[in-house]
């Protein structure tokens, strides 16, 4: 395959005194669903606006589908579709009109797909824009984007406001898009959604990517949590290499350990007679909390 769907190198964007992006790198391969995570104000929407050619970076390179995001914006927009987290509609146009208009502005729409999505999202297309609830406005933009047949879907918190049932429909539809070969950049705060959909994840913090890879790669880089009950109180755990956060309460212990030292830790526990053992890799939530806090990152 040729150039990646999205290739960003050293992106910098400063708003007066705020450095929103500080040398951001991001690569999204063709056909993958890429989760884009980070705390509030980390720079996700700013990155996306630059990728859409709506903002100009101070320095760095942003290439989408092999072309420059700023100077080739119009040509690129034939092949990508966008859903913002806060959709505003025209007050005197119906939802159906807005979907078709956005489809036309994009340069094409799969009519059958549009009607199907309207049905699956249970959207009343005859209502005027001013009377839609937040979730329904969001659905209008989703249907327009997902029926466009774009090669690349750029979704910035696309399901804020959707109910859990519609959230499930969204996940199904993105799965179908992926099966059809579409590339998806998905910025989201809903970790379950990202965990389920994303092939790869980039975590961004203070305008720079702090980690990028598949979920299992990210997990591998981090620590496994172990809880055990032993026949005799386990001692000396906290001095083992790679072990941290050890807590002992009588015959119960709980600690985290680097992936490469897991084997040694379990062997050590064996000496005390293991009666019960659970170990789990960090959930995405635990992964994220590491990065979201102000402490040292991973």
């Amino acid at each position: 395959m040729t150039a990646p769907a999205i290739e960003v190198r050293g992106l910098v964007k400063t708003f007066r005194t705020t450095r929103a992006l500080d040398g951001l790198d991001l690569t999204v391969a063709h056909g993958e669903v890429h989760g884009f995570l980070g705390p509030n104000g980390a720079g996700k929407s700013t990155t996306i606006r630059i990728l859409l050619g709506l903002m100009r970076a101070d320095s760095g390179r942003a290439a989408v589908l092999g072309r420059d995001a700023w100077s080739d914006a119009v040509a690129l927009h034939r092949r990508l579709a966008y859903v913002p987290g806060d959709v505003e509609l025209w007050p005197n146009l119906t939802g159906g009109e807005a979907i078709d208009l956005l489809g036309r502005l994009h340069g094409g729409q799969d009519r059958a797909r549009r009607d199907e999505l309207v049905r699956r999202f249970e959207l009343d297309t005859a209502k005027k824009g001013r009377t839609y609830s937040k979730g329904n406005r969001q659905k209008v933009a989703l249907v327009a984007a997902l029926s466009s047949g774009a090669d690349l879907l750029v979704l910035d918190e696309p399901t804020s406001g959707l109910d859990p049932l519609m959230e499930a429909v969204f996940q199904e539809v993105v799965g179908e898009a992926k099966a059809a070969g579409q590339t998806v950049l998905l910025s989201s705060h809903i970790l379950a959604q990202v965990e389920k959909l994303a092939d790869r994840i980039s975590i961004i913090r203070k305008g720079a990517v702090v980690q990028s890879g598949t979920l299992s790669e990210l997990r591998h880089l981090t620590r496994t949590t172990v809880e055990a009950a032993t026949a005799t109180p386990a001692t000396g755990i906290d001095t083992l290499p790679g072990v941290r956060d050890a807590e002992a309460d009588g015959r119960h212990v709980r600690f985290t350990v680097d992936s490469e030292h897991l084997d040694g830790a379990i062997k050590h526990l064996g000496g005390f007679g293991i009666q019960a053992l659970t170990s789990h890799p960090p959930t995405l939530e635990e992964l994220m909390l590491r990065h979201y806090g102000d402490g040292d990152a991973a």
Partner: peptide, 13 residues
């Protein structure tokens, strides 16, 4: 379900 087959890879025309 109707599917869509976007042109894959390469640079945008």
């Amino acid at each position: 379900m109707s599917t869509i087959a976007p042109a894959r890879g390469g640079t945008a025309p």
